[in-house]
């Protein structure tokens, strides 16, 4: 308490904290109203409409300029992603087949690195030395 009294910025910090709490409380009350929810979602709807119009305009422009649109580039990326995903699934199947072969109890670890033994006990049950 004595330290706080000597700290010239202590009052300022308290004031800041109170301001933050008050503004958050007032804002939460305002934002928790039906009117706010209605107007916020109205604004979002208008933004979505504007974005859609822009997207259509840009698609028409890029087609005129003989350039691929973002959707088309993303389509190619998706197909590459699909090939990678299929390769992943094949790799999983191969690992499982390998694990079933004699002498392999489980699939090999993804990264072969020396692992510590799984023998740890919680501190209270560890024998005292």
């Amino acid at each position: 308490m004595a330290d706080k009294d000597k700290d010239p910025l202590a009052s300022w910090r308290d004031l800041l904290s109170q301001w933050e709490q008050n503004v958050n409380a007032i804002a939460n009350r305002t934002m928790g109203s039906d009117e706010y929810s209605s107007s916020m979602n109205g604004a979002m709807g208008a933004t979505l409409k504007m974005q859609e119009t822009m997207r259509q305009f840009m698609a028409a422009y890029l087609a005129t300029a003989n350039l691929p649109s973002r959707t088309e580039v993303l389509g190619i990326a998706e197909r590459i992603g699909g090939v990678e995903a299929r390769l992943d699934r094949i790799a999983v199947l191969l690992e499982r087949i390998a694990a079933k072969e004699p002498g392999q109890a489980t699939a090999p670890p993804a990264v072969s690195r020396p692992r510590p033994p799984r023998t740890k006990s919680p501190p209270s049950t560890e024998p005292s030395t």
């Binding site: 692992r115 510590p116 033994p117 799984r118 023998t119 740890k120």
Partner: peptide
């Protein structure tokens, strides 16, 4: 892992 032994 960094510990000498780990939980099971």
């Amino acid at each position: 892992p960094v510990a000498d032994e780990i939980y099971r």
